[in-house]
Design a protein around this nucleic acid. Structure first.
Lengths: 111, 111
DNA sequence: CCGAGTGTTCGACGAAAACCATACAGTGGC
DNA sequence: GCCACTGTATGGTTTTCGTCGAACACTCGG
């Protein structure tokens, strides 16, 4: 049975069902903001969770991705042993116009 | 000396000097979001701090206003015994285009 | 079938944040 | 001068959040 995954698929939330405060809280964290920025600079499904340059262990990293999923920011798919990611640009932009751009265009000021 | 206030003027931060994550964190709180919404629906300098319908004591309320000031969202001025507020619509919009609209246009969903 | 690689889950910990009650500092009316 | 009113500052409690270490689950290659 090739192509069959026996791993539990990650739970995804569509941006349409996400409250604004949840979206803001998801982005108001330095680690998650960095994840989103790197993800925005990469092609869809090209980055697995372990390939991000953030100063946290894999347990915390896994938690952050869960938060991003719950906020409708990230979609994940299992590809062999790793879990590859995609930034939900269009859907998130439709729900929260301009929000993603604010985080991406930021001048990396202190904070 | 009429017109002289002996009270320390509140410290204000212009939105231009505010990091994006600080702005997001300031708005990602239910109480503060409510303050901003009520403020947006009132004329400038028409509301003093005590006139907002939020379920917290005045100590916490004072703290929330300090956070909003530090995020460049609110300007305050002393008017007799009370401190009246103004939402910095234009300045904040110039620094974070679309962000205020997201909080104001929200459908008040749970969360 | 085993072992390396990848990511999640669990429990615990510390730091940060929200909150309250109280005390304090101005303002203005009496 | 006193007192009610408004908001700030302080100290301490509770809750939330980010983090880690360790254990577990799954995939794939030998």
């Amino acid at each position: 049975m090739a192509g069959t995954s026996h791993r539990a698929a990650p739970e995804h939330t569509h941006p349409d069902g996400v409250p604004v405060l949840t979206a803001l809280a998801a982005l108001a964290d330095p680690v998650r903001a960095q994840l989103v920025r790197e993800l925005a600079g990469s092609a869809d499904w090209s980055r697995s969770c372990g390939t991000f340059d953030v100063p946290v262990g894999k347990a915390a990293l896994s938690h952050h991705f869960a938060v991003l999923r719950a906020a409708g920011l990230v979609e994940q798919r299992d590809e062999g042993p790793r879990r590859v990611n995609r930034l939900r640009r269009a859907e998130f932009e439709a729900r929260f116009p301009g929000l993603l751009a604010l985080v991406l265009r930021d001048d990396m000021r202190r904070g």
